[in-house]
């Protein structure tokens, strides 16, 4: 295979031009999807983390079981189960609904673990000081504990968010027309690898800055953990 043929197979401008509208639509959907599933997962995590502050084993153990259950199931398995399984229970779900449910359960469990660690990292004295000034438990949580908790685990939150955005690519499996799905469509029509390569490049351009940022934060974090 000559170099020209290689370029033609993976980096063809002509093909890119043809496929661009399809890829663009896919990119927009990926962004849209991220904007839906990241807050959704975060919300799920917040609920779990707040439940985690309840000191009762009737809450604690079911909570741990729930979190470990959804951390044990690969997200794709969860997604397929929801998408292909629920119709058999008489519930027709769209691809988007299935993705939303799957991500709520899966990424919620991860965000939940991170936020729980964050809340635990805030010294007890903070709550006590806040309560002494007359704040309610909820106010102390919202205004004193959570802001510090989020700041303490910010690198982990960003890292998880990066993973969630990457994970939206599994929506292609249930035919949701996000970036990877569109690229696969374009590839099967053009018989050329350029669209998939283009999708990879787009992901990289989009996410590289986040990876750089994380790598800095993580180095600092490890240094603090000796």
């Amino acid at each position: 295979m000559s170099f020209d043929e290689f370029l033609q197979a993976f980096f063809s401008l002509e093909i890119l031009q043809q496929a661009w509208p399809i890829l663009w639509a896919g990119l927009l959907n990926t962004l849209l999807l991220s904007v839906v599933v990241v807050p959704l997962g975060f919300l799920g995590g917040l609920i779990l983390a707040l439940l985690g502050t309840v000191h009762s084993r009737w809450v604690r153990w079911p909570l741990i079981a729930w979190v470990d259950l959804f951390r044990s199931l690969p997200p794709l398995v969860l997604l397929v189960f929801v998408y292909a399984g629920l119709p058999f229970a008489g519930l027709e779900v769209t691809a988007l609904t299935a993705v939303a449910i799957g991500f709520f359960l899966n990424t919620g469990a991860y965000y939940g673990e991170i936020l729980r660690a964050g809340i635990e990292s805030v010294p007890r004295g903070q709550v006590e000081a806040a309560r002494c000034t007359g704040l309610t438990a909820a106010q102390a949580m919202a205004h004193v504990v959570l802001p510090q908790a989020v700041r303490n685990v910010l690198p982990d939150l960003i890292s998880n968010t990066l993973e969630v955005v990457k994970l939206t690519s599994i929506a292609s499996v249930v035919a949701l027309p996000e970036l990877l799905f569109q690229a696969r469509q374009a590839q099967s029509v053009t018989y050329n690898a350029t669209p998939i390569m283009a999708a990879a490049v787009i992901y990289f351009i989009l996410l590289w800055p986040v990876v750089r940022l994380l790598s800095r934060l993580e180095n600092r974090q490890m240094a603090g953990r000796r």
């Binding site: 295979m1 290689f6 197979a9 993976f10 990066l162 990457k166 994970l167 939206t168 690519s169 599994i170 292609s172 990877l180 690229a183 696969r184 590839q187 018989y191 050329n192 690898a193 998939i196 390569m197 999708a199 990879a200 992901y203 990289f204 989009l206 996410l207 590289w208 986040v210 990876v211 994380l214």
Partner: peptide, 21 residues
């Protein structure tokens, strides 16, 4: 590179793309 790319995209590139080479 491999932290930024979704694993499924890499799999697709290797499985569906490499045959073009």
């Amino acid at each position: 590179l491999f932290r930024a790319l979704p694993p499924l995209v890499i799999i697709a590139l290797l499985y569906f793309g490499l045959p073009a080479a």
